[in-house]
Amino acid sequence: MWRYVLKRILLAILSIFIIITLTFFLMHAIPGGPFAAEKAIPDNVKAALERRFNLDKPVFTQYLLYLRNLLRFDFGVSMKHGRDVSRIISEGFATSARLGGFAALVAIAAGLVLGSLAALTRNRLPDRIIIFVTTLFTAIPSFVLATLLLLIFCLQLKVFPVWSATNPSYVLPVISLALYPMAYITRLTKTSMLDVLGQDYIRTAKAKGVKDVIIIFKHALRNALIPVVTYVGPMIAYIVTGSLVVETVFTIGGLGTQFVTSITNRDYSVIMGTTIFLATLIVIASLISDLMYKLVDPRIKFD
C-alpha cells in the first residue's frame, strides 16, 4: 500500500517538474525576447529591463532562478503590464475555483442520480431518454454549448443576467461546464450499477426482504461509486480546460480568461505561470483520485 502511494506521489512530482521544465524551455525557444515587440526601446532601457528579468544570463541559470522562485510561489511579473503573476493567479482562481467546484458538484450529483435511475429502469422509457440525452451531450463541445446558452437564455430570453463582477450568475456557466462530465458519470454509474445489481449479495438482500430503497442506497450505490471515483481526476482536468473557453464566452474574469488573454497577448510569463499552476492542480487532482480509488476498493491489488 505505502509503496504504491509513494510511487504515485513521486510520479506526480515528476510530472509537475516536467511541466515546469517544458514550459520554461518552450517559452524560451520562442524567437525574439519579450521586449522585442511593437516599438523600439532604447538600448540602455532594454539592457536594464533584461537585467531586471535576468534575461542577460545564460538560459540554464535563468531556469535555475525560475525554479528557485517557484518554490516561493513567485511566478515573476507580467511582461505586458508588470503585475505580479502570482497575484493575477490568486485573484482569478477565486472565481474559477467557485465555478469549477459548483460544476463538479452538479456533475457528480446529477450524474449519480441519472445513472442509478437509468440502471433501475433498464430498457424502459426513462433509461432510454437518459441515455439518448447523455449521448447527445457528449457530442457538444463546451464552448458551443456555452455560446448557445448565452445566446438563448441571456441575450434572447433574458432569464439570466449577463455576468458581472458585482452580480455573478453562476447558472449558465456551471451548466456548460457540468453537462459533459455529468453525461459521462451517468453512463459510468449506469454500467457499474447494472454490474452490481447482478451480484449475489443483492439477491441475498432481496431474499431477506430488505427494502428496495435500502438495497439501492446502502448496497448497490456504494459499490457502484467505485468506478466513478476514478473519473474525478479526468473530470477536474476537463473542467479546468473547459473553464478557459467557458469563462471567455461568459466574460467571467477568472483564471481561464486570464490564460486565454495571455495567449492572445503573448504574455509569456503569465502563460508560464498559469500553465504551471493549472497543471499542478490537475496532477494533484488525478493523484488524489487514484489514491482514493485504491482506498475505497480494498479488492484492488497494489503492484
Partner: peptide
C-alpha cells in the same frame, strides 16, 4: 500520460 494533455497541447501550439 500523467501530464495534463490539453494544457501541454495549448503550450506546444503557442510555441
Amino acid at each position: 500520460y500523467s501530464l495534463p494533455d490539453m494544457l501541454v497541447i495549448i503550450l506546444l501550439s503557442v510555441v
